[in-house]
Design a protein around this nucleic acid. Structure first.
Lengths: 198, 198
DNA sequence: CTATATCTTGAATAAACATTCAAAATATAC
DNA sequence: GTATATTTTGAATGTTTATTCAAGATATAG
């Protein structure tokens, strides 16, 4: 009984890319067989169907994002410094990327939201976890006396999420890295101000 | 030679709704014949094809948006007061609406961007005009000595656009009107601060 | 080496889709 | 009232789509 011959993570990353670039609906099975190198039957054997492959890709995306997140936010560095770096990385990501600047989660959420309740809630949960990850960092900074305990950290993390959504959408209209950087810096300043107003 | 029997604007508004709700790809011709009440042939006669109908709907959406915009920003009221009302209206729109909270322009931009250069540039132009409309309002406020002439009005209008993109995306994840209002208020405060820092 | 359970292959299938078209309807022009 | 140009109609068309499946390949177990 042979185990799957293909590298699951690699296949999921290829699928992820195709889904982000073309969108779920416009991604045909043919696109997926091309990008993953798998034959239709193999995909159906491993992931049940196109929807199952999307769900698996979403899970992989979440895992990859969390690793990236942890890479940026370490305990040794001040939260605000880590946040600045995190935002700068998003700016670079948007400026570098040729195709679609959206993240898989928001793109799929907007596209599928009202046609598939389960997928909607999977994505909403992931986005909420991401927002909570910011909040945790702020929380830890308060415990380390780095931020005032008066900070409304849930408001801050929501506003931060909103800002990043906006930044990525703004990046869709042809714009320069300099402009994106200005916007990211402004967002950073506004978050920073929320930590200082006590 | 009979003119078209149907009401063009009404047809386009129906098509607009269907496109926003289901997305361009997932909107079938059958969906469109149902929502517009037109038979396939009539749609092809009047708009050439599905893509043509989208382009016409985008143009109608732009016109409708501009009317709404002018309804909010009148010369008699202070810009910041008008802006507050404008943002509050967006919050209400997101809270009321059952289905998709995105605006047609951003939704179609994210979906189609890299598969149709012409549509991408039509939408980008519309979004840029919208951003410029904010900038014009700020400009007029400077001329009326209502705002300092030191204000970086293009930066302000870009940041405002970004914030609204973010707000609408945030609204896609199930959230309450109260939370959206907090975010809109925060955005308003941050824009306001940009007018005062001189 | 043989048996077996699993995976791979890719052509076949059936449904959904955008689009076409010829016939019928209809409003204006003269 | 007749002619004419345009729109409306909806069934037919051909393509694209996700999905299936039976035959073949392959790695482990005994």
């Amino acid at each position: 009984m042979p185990p799957a011959k293909f590298d699951r993570e690699q296949v999921l990353r290829s699928a992820m890319n195709t889904f982000v670039q073309k969108g779920y609906s416009k991604t045909s099975m043919q696109d997926l067989t091309k990008s993953t190198g798998l034959h239709p039957g193999s995909i159906y054997c491993a992931f049940e169907n196109k929807r199952g492959l999307l769900l698996a890709a979403l899970a992989q995306y979440k895992q990859d994002s969390e690793l990236k997140f942890e890479g940026h936010f370490s305990q040794e560095v001040a939260v605000l410094d880590s946040l600045k770096q995190y935002l700068d990385a998003i700016v670079l990501d948007c400026a570098d990327k040729e195709g679609n600047k959206a993240c898989l989660l928001t793109r799929a959420l907007t596209e599928i939201a009202d046609q598939d309740v389960e997928i909607k809630s999977v994505i909403s949960d992931s986005l909420y976890d991401w927002q909570k990850a910011f909040q945790n960092q702020f929380e830890m900074a308060i415990e380390a006396k780095e931020l005032s305990s008066e900070c409304d950290i849930s408001h801050m993390s929501r506003y931060l999420s909103m800002g990043i959504y906006g930044l990525r959408t703004f990046a869709q209209t042809n714009t320069t890295q300099a402009v994106l950087q200005e916007l990211a810096d402004q967002l950073f300043n506004d978050i920073k101000r929320l930590t200082l107003s006590h």
